[in-house]
Simulated scan of single mutants.
Amino acid sequence: MAATNRLAGIVSKINQLPDFARSRALSLFFGKAIPFTGTAGIRIESLDDSHCVISLANKRRVQNHIGGVHAVASMLLAESATGILVGLNVPDDKVPVIKTVKAEYTKRAKGDMRVEARLTEEQKLRMRTEDKGDTTVAVTIHDGEAKEPIEFEMVWAWVSKKR
């Protein structure tokens, strides 16, 4: 992964660690940088500038009243995975901002949750070259039974830090 900004440079260095240490180091780093992800217990399984996989164990601190992962916790997963990808690709003089979040809960989720987010080469190029813009980041979520209980639409924008 070519470093396009400071965040990408840090992630690139962490990704050089041995496999057994990489996920823990990424999770700790983002847990410190974005405290709510650390509080919730989000685990970053893999990360590069095009693809992010994160998970959340179905533990009491993130459960709803029926013992599943709370709706807001699942939203946190989708927002985190997509936001991390956008953050890795916008230059340091831009700031990523969530613009639209849509969620359709189609099935009851069971067990732990796992999210995958992806960016295309075209999306990455736009983020790196356009002064401002927005894009829909592809994201899927799977529960402990490998079902997709929620359909997300996450639209991210990037704007100049200077107004």
Rank of each mutant, 00 (worst) to 15 (best):
T4Q: 06
R6N: 07
I10F: 07
I10G: 03
I14W: 11
I14S: 06
N15Q: 07
Q16P: 07
Q16D: 14
Q16L: 12
L17F: 10
L17H: 03
P18A: 09
D19Y: 09
D19N: 14
D19G: 08
F20W: 15
F20G: 10
F20P: 09
A21M: 15
R22K: 15
S23I: 14
L26A: 12
S27M: 13
S27V: 14
F30G: 08
F30P: 11
G31F: 12
P35S: 14
P35N: 11
P35E: 13
F36G: 00
T37I: 12
T37V: 13
T37K: 09
G41T: 12
G41M: 08
I42R: 10
I42V: 15
I44W: 10
I44M: 14
D48F: 06
S55M: 04
S55E: 09
A57Q: 13
A57F: 03
A57K: 15
N58E: 10
K59M: 10
R60Y: 09
R60Q: 11
R61E: 13
R61V: 08
V62T: 02
Q63G: 01
H65A: 01
H65T: 02
G68N: 04
V69H: 01
H70Q: 05
A71Q: 06
M75K: 04
L77W: 01
L77R: 06
E79K: 02
S80D: 08
A81R: 09
A81F: 10
G83S: 12
I84L: 11
I84E: 05
I84R: 05
L85G: 02
L85H: 07
V86H: 06
L88W: 01
V90A: 01
P91T: 04
D92T: 07
D93F: 06
V95G: 10
V95K: 15
K99C: 01
K102G: 13
K102R: 15
A103I: 04
E104K: 15
T106A: 14
T106S: 13
K107P: 09
K107L: 13
K110H: 12
K110V: 15
G111P: 02
D112T: 11
M113H: 06
V115T: 10
R118P: 09
L119G: 02
T120K: 00
E122M: 04
Q123M: 05
R126C: 02
T129C: 02
D131P: 09
G133L: 01
V137W: 05
A138K: 12
I141F: 00
D143Q: 01
G144D: 05
K147P: 00
K147I: 06
K147L: 11
E148K: 14
I150M: 04
E151M: 10
E151D: 12
F152Q: 07
W156F: 09
W156I: 05
A157P: 11
V159M: 10
V159H: 08
K161V: 05
K161Y: 03
K162T: 07
